[in-house]
Amino acid sequence: MKKGHHILIVEDEEHLSIGLRFNFEAEGYRVAVAGDGPSGLRIFRDAEPPIDLIILDLMLPGMSGYEICRQIRTIDPSVPILVLSARTLGEDKAKAFDFGSDQYLTKPFELVELISRVRNLLERRHGGHPVSPEQQETVSFGTAEVDFRTHEVKVAGEPRTLTPLELQLLRLFINNEGVVLTRGDILKEVWNIDPPPATRTVDNFVMRLRKHFEEDPANPKHILSVRGAGYRFMSRHEDSPEK
């Protein structure tokens, strides 16, 4: 992984943000810090070089972390966002994912784990995440071509930008082709939420994948709903209607 990646820390607890900045700079990263929501959003928009990853608290002055997440996703759909919050409920985690975060770590936390998660997210964003031998690096279905190593995605020859979570969900579907995956299965495997809370996180992300890969998202041919159960991925179109 290349050192010097630009990290933005949005955290209103000054002692924590100072400590995080010190430790990430010691790891070789360039670090910007904001103590409130509007400042964090402004730094993200104006940063040069651009921000490569965001560590984001949820309870912030001026603007919540949820709203920051939502606005950042309208600017950059793929920049990794790691939420670092004292909120521990499954509903809080699900809401953060719904708004576009990629990972969620609760306070108090182990610094080693945080640094490891940041490293892994940056490796995935920049195409350095290792692929296990049983996983295909490149996959084609319909008019789509996906390279999981480089994160290059094309649909009908046109490039598409997917977030790390969207790619992770797509990989889960592809690796389990033909298998019905429940929403609980998906939340556990992709979001590490168990037991699953009542949330539309999975449904929202499936809708996003369908917009990328289905010719008609309202009548999908690849990411199929199975009523009362979950979802099933098929690389080849089935003649039968969606269940």
Results as ranks from 00 to 15, higher is better:
residue 11 E to L: 06
residue 11 E to S: 06
residue 18 I to W: 08
residue 24 F to T: 07
residue 29 Y to A: 11
residue 30 R to N: 15
residue 34 A to M: 08
residue 38 P to I: 06
residue 42 R to F: 12
residue 43 I to V: 15
residue 44 F to N: 02
residue 49 P to F: 04
residue 50 P to M: 01
residue 50 P to Y: 01
residue 51 I to C: 00
residue 51 I to G: 01
residue 54 I to R: 05
residue 55 I to D: 02
residue 64 S to K: 07
residue 64 S to H: 09
residue 65 G to H: 13
residue 71 Q to S: 01
residue 76 D to A: 14
residue 78 S to P: 09
residue 82 L to R: 11
residue 84 L to K: 02
residue 84 L to Y: 11
residue 86 A to I: 01
residue 89 L to T: 06
residue 90 G to W: 07
residue 93 K to G: 05
residue 94 A to L: 10
residue 96 A to C: 08
residue 99 F to E: 06
residue 105 L to V: 03
residue 108 P to S: 00
residue 108 P to T: 01
residue 108 P to H: 00
residue 108 P to Q: 01
residue 111 L to I: 06
residue 117 R to W: 07
residue 117 R to M: 13
residue 117 R to V: 02
residue 118 V to T: 15
residue 119 R to T: 05
residue 119 R to Y: 14
residue 122 L to P: 03
residue 123 E to M: 13
residue 124 R to A: 14
residue 126 H to A: 03
residue 126 H to I: 04
residue 130 P to L: 09
residue 131 V to T: 15
residue 132 S to A: 12
residue 134 E to P: 13
residue 137 E to R: 15
residue 138 T to D: 07
residue 150 T to A: 12
residue 150 T to W: 04
residue 151 H to V: 03
residue 154 K to W: 02
residue 156 A to N: 03
residue 156 A to I: 12
residue 156 A to W: 08
residue 173 F to Y: 08
residue 178 G to E: 03
residue 182 T to Y: 05
residue 183 R to S: 10
residue 188 K to T: 12
residue 188 K to G: 02
residue 189 E to M: 08
residue 189 E to P: 04
residue 203 D to E: 13
residue 206 V to A: 06
residue 207 M to T: 10
residue 211 K to T: 14
residue 214 E to L: 12
residue 215 E to I: 06
residue 217 P to T: 08
residue 217 P to A: 11
residue 222 H to L: 07
residue 230 G to P: 04
residue 236 R to P: 03
residue 237 H to L: 00
residue 240 S to M: 13
